[in-house]
Design a binder for these strands. Structure first.
Lengths: 148, 148
DNA sequence: CTATACCTTATGGTATATCATGGGTTTTTA
DNA sequence: TAAAAACCCATGATATACCATAAGGTATAG
């Protein structure tokens, strides 16, 4: 998956890049999007992945625990299903667009089993940051990820 | 899933968001609501889930023996069935609305298998609190849940 | 090796269906 | 009998589905 720039029209519609669609389509015709917790961008994935995460939370925390309560609110309160039509577009909400400061162009960035949607300028900065960081931590990284 | 703001009309009626309805409708046309034990909000789910919760409480007797009675009383004594009509609306009771301080607008917050109903201002505060908290505990979280 | 035809994908526009919400009417119940 | 709740219909807003066009890329034929 590479980085793709697509236009956002006046209604908030964006074409999900065809490569992304192809992967999702094997399972369904919808994705889930939510505001990234740590970055000014939108994150997307399949519902399956989100369900898996929810199950993990349920297993790792107690039913009545504050942690479980907070996490489920955080994840499911924010996440929204987006079905894409025959032309492969989704309609992003105001909340999501605002969080990522996206107006007329959205940058799709593949992240393995999920992806991110950025404002072009912000992504440019982020990419530079990531590259610098990766270079700095290279020795540690290679040791850690051995199994991949 | 998702957070949705709906109006409460003069008669106390609220539209249950269509996405929520779609999931419930496969089974029936009613949900169960009760006052949250931990937060100033209303909680809602299907009757099936409440039954499951009852079983879980029973199974956890070893750990909750003291509080089991209290829990069952609090939840089941409070829970009430709400059928939604052809337009998808329910009529919440005074008791529930008062507990959540809801007057003219109700915020539906998805929690996976259940949902919460909040007063807009309270939810805004709660959401900010949760997100800040999650950000602070991020290292711990990611280790536990292996994803984000 | 180049040009043309074809296919895929992105994007703009439009019509249709859905949903939230308001109001009115009937039925229940206290 | 009065108040409240369930039911029904109407409407405006909005999202969704669909069609048409444009642009880019690839394969094939000349």
């Amino acid at each position: 998956m590479d980085t793709i720039f697509n236009k956002v029209d006046a209604k908030g519609r964006v074409s999900l890049p065809s490569d992304y669609r192809a992967i999702v389509k094997e399972l369904s015709t919808e994705i889930v999007c939510y505001r990234s917790l740590t970055a000014p961008c939108i994150e997307g994935c399949t519902e399956e992945l989100l369900d898996k995460l929810a199950t993990e939370i349920e297993n790792a925390t107690d039913f009545f625990s504050e942690t479980q309560d907070n996490l489920t609110n955080l994840i499911f309160g924010d996440a929204k299903r987006f079905t894409f039509d025959s032309t492969g577009r989704i309609m992003l909400t105001e909340k999501l667009l605002k969080h990522a400061s996206i107006t007329d162009t959205a940058v799709f960035v593949g992240k393995g089993r999920k992806f991110q949607i950025w404002n072009p300028e912000n992504w440019e900065k982020e990419e530079a940051r990531i590259r610098a960081e990766a270079l700095k931590n290279r020795p540690t990284l290679t040791r850690k990820t051995e199994g991949e």
